[in-house]
Design a protein around this nucleic acid. Structure first.
Lengths: 209, 209
DNA sequence: GGGTTATCTAAACAGCGTCCACATAAGGAC
DNA sequence: GTCCTTATGTGGACGCTGTTTAGATAACCC
């Protein structure tokens, strides 16, 4: 950001390339899709040579991880905010699930990137700025725990909760559900309806196996 | 498959290339992972030039779809067989869910390919040799329908069922659950445990919203 | 046998991730 | 200020990819 006379001269050093690359990655992902998200395209968008990113990320992968990390953080924020909406703990669980799925619906490509990277790491990341999105779900369950029938296993329930939300997040985008959404008066109503039917498995169906 | 004297001469025409390519694709996917699954590698494995597949598939994508289709068919078979195991309709639902998740656990890369393609088509495929895996789940729910509390929506329940199974299938591979699996005495016990906790959302938690 | 059609090859194209040698500039020691 | 070190950029190359084109080969049908 230096001026030479009155002509703006692009400085040899970018100044904040690392951040610029991550933001360029996010723009390309949302605007042109994951198949267009190449290292070279990111460098191009940042106005820099194809080799420059290697001074900030050891890999293409490492850059994508940085993009995905923004997503995990944003997801945790969305979940945390949703808890305020459901005053009763029991309703809060549904609100958390809804917030989770809506996040995935509104950032579908980012959400996909997050899980693509997590899967090939065989490890679920937690958002760094807090105890993590997973923990947020667990807390919501603890709050409602007294209302859940015994035998109740907190860990298994948290996993069940997360699995149901994640599964719905991936399924809800399929267009064969479009007419159901329309019949129910919108996407949010549809999502809420499915979430409220997620007891389909469950102990009352298999008492004392 | 023709002999010239005693030396085996590779014939100019393969004879059954289309099938050979799909099988080569499946081998490479399982053995070397999705990132190694290139059109050129498939052609190489089939002993054919990189351009040959284009006489049988218009795209790399179309070849992968053929591989994935085998997966959808196999999944439907697995679900159908699992229904026989649960004699009571109520237990059958859990058995179906378990069969679904176990299929994903045993063919993780194939399962991923199936959904990767489905998502970019924004459409869920049904296995062709029957009414489809989705339909199988729906039937299991119809059988158990009388045992499910009102108000009951079959379509929403089927989606809920599928979502829960799919979500668990993706989550269960994460290694942070390894110690829970060990504590529960194996993967199948773990999966069953989660499935039986999937009532976490559900109408009894949000009566008459 | 001769013409049509299906199938395969060889060679080329642009784009990709990555690495190398080298250029440029910023920062600290004196 | 000058000198040296270190961080950050460029340009060019490598081998890989998906895909297209022109031409070779063989099967099939009249």
């Amino acid at each position: 950001m230096r001026k030479d006379g009155n002509a703006q001269v692009k400085p040899y050093h970018h100044g904040d390339l690392s951040r610029a690359l991550v933001e360029a990655g996010r723009r390309i992902l949302e605007a042109e899709g994951p198949e267009a998200l190449s290292l070279r395209a990111v460098a191009r968008e940042a106005g820099v040579s194809p080799a420059a990113p290697y001074h900030h990320f050891k890999d293409k992968r490492e850059l994508l991880e940085a993009v995905a990390q923004q997503g995990w953080t944003a997801l945790e924020v969305a979940i945390r905010e949703s808890k305020a909406k459901g005053k009763e703990p029991r309703k809060a669980i549904v609100e958390v699930g809804l917030a989770y799925v809506l996040f995935a619906q509104r950032n579908p490509k980012l959400y996909r990137l997050m899980y693509d990277l997590a899967r090939s790491r065989t490890d679920m990341p937690q958002a760094k700025g807090g105890a993590g999105a997973y923990h947020q779900v667990q807390c919501a369950l603890i709050d409602a725990g007294e209302d859940l029938a015994e035998p109740f296993n907190l860990q298994l329930s948290t996993i069940a909760c997360w699995a149901a939300g994640h599964g719905l997040a991936e399924l809800a985008g399929f267009k064969q559900f479009d007419h159901i959404k329309a019949a129910m008066g919108g996407e949010e109503a549809f999502l809420r309806g499915v979430l409220e039917h997620i007891q389909v498995y469950g102990r009352q169906l298999t008492p004392a196996t």
